[in-house]
Amino acid sequence: MNYQLFINQQVKDYKGETGYVVAFDNDHIVIQQGGEQITYNPDIAFKNKALVFLDDKYNDLVNGDMKDRDNTSIVYQQKIDKINKEAIKRNKMASDKYIELEKKDKALKRLFGYDFVYPPFELLKKKFPHAKRKKNEFEMIIEHICSPTLKPKPPKDKNQNVQS
């Protein structure tokens, strides 16, 4: 939208006092009322009708622009939501596949020896390195036990304590 068109146009505020536009951009509209300048957020001010142009032509322009922006933001949000959903779905599918193939891999290792490599599982591991099943309680406990925070601290030097 060409904001220069609105400069010096007369505006009426919510109190009924008139003024004229001094500056206008995407986020601010500055209005000269008497001796002072008041800044508004154009989106909020025009939506709540706290500011109205005396000439309806400019009101239509502003409203049209706001509608377009709303529409584009909705479409954009929808696109993002769709992408997120797809990503979640893909991740879920990958982790489901991971669980399935891991189970199969274990069974095949039992049948064909523990050195057997099941190619689809290896491929999946490479393709989706983050797609892993949830850890069960037992694994979590072991991880917790083996974590560095729980490792015994090295004994303090007795000499150091004496000196201090």
Binding site: F112, D115, V117, Y118
Partner: peptide, 10 residues
Amino acid sequence: LRKKLQKELY
């Protein structure tokens, strides 16, 4: 030999 046989069987 095991690797070879496993590959062939797959």
